[in-house]
Design a protein around this nucleic acid. Structure first.
Length: 467
RNA sequence: GGCGCGGUGGCCGAGGAGUUAGGCAGCGGUCUGCAAAACCGCCUACACGAGUGCGAAUCUCGUCCGUGCCUCCA
């Protein structure tokens, strides 16, 4: 049984898929106008951890992630970067570049992109028009001079609830915050489904009745269209960062349920909390964000960052500091060094010691609202025993393949055996030590050190580890 | 201003009324030909004030501080 925190009910509940044995997941992906920052990465790592947890429970998972490749920011940036190109070509060029770097980044932090179905907003325009037309037909949407808006009032009158994820009372909204003159919408709460083309902007043809509404989609409609297109309605789980709860997901719900008869868009909304940097929120609009490349440039392993993310619970705010990353990297290194023991016949016991309840306990933590910190604690307790060189080889393989399947740290794959010549060097050194030829012994040790292999001599023989 | 969340040892981070978190760093020691990121031990904390309990880091109230959302946001 998997338990998840569902934002719709604001508590941890048992997860039950719509179709037995299968799960559909929609993950709000990046707006591809710049490099993704590490905060973005953390939310995708958590989304992937959810998928891995579902799969570990024997469920067949279809996870979709979108690319927001048309919106205010992508348009603005593409015009700045490629002012001489046709607006649509400029947009495509810019977004393709960032889609490609996003893919690289996400793979570096261990996200298995082959298991995710990616979808682009610009390839889903027809579906957006379809939903908008349905909303217009139901009079939940209306035409204005500068675009098409969804009327919150009409939506509510149709019997639906606006504010399913967040309690929003009218008195909360400060009118001063919204420059209503800028838009032709009827109410400050209404939001744009479609924006009519302005000079120099990319556009898609769209006519409503006899009115030409050529322009481009609003941000929220993109996700409503892409999720419905790829997963159908309703689907099981919608994921994203907490800052997408309002207005993005709330508006998606309004669109997806307003146009249809079903009252829900997705049964579960799972939101991850922010990764702060030095205690402050990271945002592209502020200038305090790091990208994965910054981490790599400082010599850190991107997977150490993944571990840093997993060390804190997805619903807790966590803090990124370089010290913290250093700490996570050392932990990962230690985990890997222990995994390397499985190749070393002189210390690996092939039978005997064993960890029968590890799998179950670890899975239990993960199934309990993806409690990665508790799962890590459990792992550490077993590793403590293994470090005493008193473990069974199949045991290490079992534990790490389980850990890899949930955490995606690729520990087994990244800790291969050393090559034959290195093994030979170790044997030669053992012989030199037997004859107390310390000069030769040290020379051979240095030789291995140059290849990134360290040695420690124990009463069970020499043990190697990667540096 | 409205609605939330949180303040845990040098650092990061779980837990959450009585019982060990864990890691990283540091210190002391052990093993060793010398070494070792190996082993052992140490540092045993929960913002502040009051309240309710036999008992509070854990519950309640208040204060201070931080932080998030309130139509850019992972």
């Amino acid at each position: 049984m998997i338990k998840l925190h569902n934002t719709l009910v604001k508590k941890i509940v048992e997860f039950t898929p719509i179709k037995e044995g299968e799960v559909t997941v929609y993950t709000c992906g990046p707006t591809v106008y710049d490099h993704a920052h590490i905060g973005n990465m953390s939310s995708y790592i958590y989304a992937e951890t959810l998928r891995r947890t579902l799969i570990a429970n024997g469920l067949k998972v279809q996870q979709v992630m979108n690319y927001t490749d048309v919106d205010d920011k992508t348009i603005k940036r593409s015009h700045e970067k490629y002012p001489d190109l046709d607006p649509k070509e400029a947009l495509l060029k810019l977004t393709s570049e960032y889609i490609s770097t996003f893919n690289d980044d996400v793979q570096k932090v261990g996200i298995d992109t082959k298991s995710i179905q990616f979808i682009k907003a610009t390839e889903s325009i027809d579906q957006m028009k379809k939903i908008i037309q349905q909303l217009l037909d139901k009079k939940i949407a209306y035409l204005a001079d500068d675009g098409i808006y969804l009327s919150i009032e009409a939506y509510k009158k149709s019997g639906k609830t606006y504010g399913q994820l967040l309690n929003i009372s009218d008195s909360n909204t400060s009118e001063a915050r919204i420059d209503n003159d800028e838009y032709d919408k009827e109410s400050v709460h209404d939001f744009a489904l479609w924006k009519k083309q302005k000079d120099g902007e990319p556009s898609w043809e769209f006519s409503v009745g006899d009115r030409d509404m050529t322009g481009r989609p609003g941000w929220h409609i993109e996700c409503s269209a892409m999720s419905e297109m790829s997963l159908g309605l309703p689907f099981d789980i919608h994921t994203g960062g907490i800052d997408l709860i309002f207005p993005h997901h709330e508006n998606e719900i309004a669109q997806s349920t307003g146009a249809k008869d079903n009252p829900v868009m997705a049964n579960y909304f799972v939101h991850s909390n922010h990764l702060l940097v030095d205690g402050k929120k990271m945002a592209k609009s502020a200038n305090n964000f790091y990208t994965l490349q910054d981490i790599i440039n400082k010599g850190f392993d991107p997977l150490a960052f993944r571990l840093l993310v997993l060390q804190s619970h997805y619903r807790n705010e966590s803090n990124f500091t370089w010290d913290n990353l250093y700490s996570a990297q050392n932990r990962l290194k230690r985990w890997k060094n222990i995994a390397e023991l499985r190749w070393q016949e002189n210390v690996a016991i092939t039978s005997g010691a064993d960890s029968p309840d590890f799998d179950e306990g670890f899975a239990e933590c993960m199934n309990d609202d993806m409690d990665t910190p508790s799962a890590i604690e459990r792992l550490e307790k077993y590793l403590g025993d293994m470090e005493n060189l008193n473990f069974c080889k199949p045991c290490v393989e079992n534990i790490y393949s389980l850990v890899d399947s949930y955490f995606g740290l690729n520990i087994l794959a990244n800790t291969p055996d050393i090559n034959d010549s290195q093994k030979q060097t170790i044997l030669e050194r053992e012989k030199a030590r037997e004859t107390k030829d310390w000069a030769k012994s040290d020379e051979l040790r240095d030789k291995l050190l140059g290849q990134g292999i360290g040695l420690r001599d124990t009463d069970k023989g020499s043990i190697w580890y990667r540096i």
